[in-house]
Each structure stands twice: as structure tokens, then as C-alpha cells.
Amino acid sequence: MVGVHKYFRRGSERIDVLNGLNLEVTEGEYFGLMGPSGSGKTTLLNLIAGLDRPSEGEVWIGGNCISRMSESQLARWRTRNVGFVFQFYHLLPVLSAFENVELPLLLLPMTGAERRQQVENALELVGLQDRMRHRPGQLSGGQQQRVGIARAIVTDPTLVVADEPTGDLDAKSAEEILDLLEELRTGLEKTIIIVTHDPRAARRCDRVLRLDKGRVADGSILLEEHG
């Protein structure tokens, strides 16, 4: 990420959210983003995941400058390269766990049998192979987040971004989700970027970047011991 600025306009007023940010995350890294509300964490995550474009600067991921891609190119790129885990899970309530996880695969050239196999693998990985036909409303918060994680990894992306994935969970479920994310990193060698307020989540990161008012805060980037 090179010289990234992001600002919004409200009438004639310019609101700066990110101010000239430079950042490099290496492949396979477990990277944390922390900071107070309004510091620009989620905006930064959106830029990394290709959900938004910087006002200035460039975002490079795996040799691709995603900040120059059109919306359709970005959508295709996201399908194959990024898995997104949300704080509030954002599962489609009318679909079963299986169908929710299958959703991103519908965009790829795969047969029904291939999709089924991949979805079952992903759900097995998160320990929900016996809940495939359940709707989100029939699952606990922790289970819903597991389905969300299965959906994020089902396309085998290189990058998984998680926006406060434990923010809506009790302590026990949060620990389980953090364990699962760590397994993804170690077992599947995914690059994980996580936005969090939770010190327990931050402690698991290789590095944590603290943001304040769109800038890297003093003392950042912190290197922490894994675990």
C-alpha cells in the first residue's frame, strides 16, 4: 500500500479518513489493525479487500494494482483472491448454511458436484458438517460466524480479511473463532488481516498496526509474540 489517502466529501467539506498510509503485509502473515472508532480501520480494510478505492495512492496485492481495477474486475478478483469475515456474520437468512457457503462458488466455472465437494470440505474444516441444512436463524452466533468463515475460505483465497470477527460473540465463542482463524493461517497458509478492538485477538497477530485519525499511531507497528 503506497501513499494511500482516502477522503470523503460532505458538501464543500473534505473529511480525511486515511492520510498518506504506507503499509506492507507479507504473504502468510497474521496482521492486526487496531485503533479507536473513526480511526480508519474499516476503511483501510475495505481498501485492502478491494471493496473501495483510495482517493490517492495505490494498493498492490500479489502483483496486482487493485486500485486501478474497474468495479467488475474488482468483483472477479475478490471472488478468487479475498475471503471476507464480518462482525455480524451477514449470512443470507433465506439460505441454509450449505447454500450460504456455496454462494461465492456460483460465480466460478464449476460443476454442481465440484461445488458440493468444496462446500462440504469448508464446512468440515469449521466443524459444521452436521449443520449444513440449518438456516442462520437456527444456529448460534459462534456457529454463524463459523459458516461466515467457511464462506470466506471456500474459494481458497490467498487473503482473508476479518472485520471485528469476535465483536458480536461471547468470550468462549470468540476464542473458538480466533483458534479457527489461526488454524487457517497455519494449516492453509492464508494471509489474515483482522480489524479488532479485542486485545486477545491482537495478541495472536504477528504484527498489529495502530491507527489514529487516519495515521499510524506512535509506537506502531508493534511486533507481538504469537499466542
Binding site: L51, A75, R76, T79, F84, F86, L103, P104, L107, R151
Partner: peptide
């Protein structure tokens, strides 16, 4: 969410 997942 669908857009995030890659729906154009």
C-alpha cells in the same frame, strides 16, 4: 454482502 463475495 453479495457484492463483497464477488457478485458483479
Amino acid at each position: 454482502v453479495m457484492k463483497v463475495l464477488g457478485f458483479r
